[in-house]
Amino acid sequence: MNVSSTFRVARLIAAKDLRVEWRSRVVTNQVLPFAVLVMVLFAFALDSDAVLERVAPGLVWLATIFSVLFLVARTYAVETADGALDALRSAGVDPMGIFLGKTAALAAQLLVLEALLVSAAVILYRADPTPSGTVLLVTTALVATVGLASVGTLYGGLAAGVKGRETLLPLLLLPVVAPVLIGATRATESAFRTNGIAVSEGWPWLGLLAVFAAIFSVVGAVAFGSLIDE
């Protein structure tokens, strides 16, 4: 498989995934409301404006990571509903292209989700990013999303064909995304100036997020084929 055909397949798969979502609206109508609901429930559980303001960045990313589980499950439910993943395998479609395409589509959906969750934090938890904080926040979201989407696509593919995938996926995925949770939360704390942390203190955390994103997108692209293959 040459590079141009890999990217052609990736574009094809990503466009297909986004079109399926555009038609079915499962993520829009179910996953996004779930994520906002989690934010509201956090508010009930923590029950204090001061506490909420302090933990808002962590809650945004915790809600994101929980939602990733559903997004990954959904993106593979689309593939297994009528045996399309089998058909992709049996058609010998380049696995690296499948991985990159599904990761891109997942990332696009995640960015929408994160935008919604940050808005919820601003409205519900009184988070208040400055202009320079917003630049940091957007960069953080972009880099963290690449990492989350890669690792989600990778482990989702491993769990897609097996019994008990609903419970296996969180067990595999949640320990792996811990660095993203830590890095993105710290960077977002700076962006929100939680506890008076300066915006500039957030940028070093992007290094961690970038390393994570680089490792899992590259390893995922290479290893995806042997994980979905039987």
């Binding site: 491993l158 595999l172 811990a178 830590i182 955390w205 961690l208 390893v219």
Partner: peptide, 23 residues
Amino acid sequence: RRSAVLALLAVLEIPLVHFSVEL
């Protein structure tokens, strides 16, 4: 094959998790 890929991913994860937790 499945578990070998996973084991190599897990090893990559050790320094990442350790570094991030330390930070």
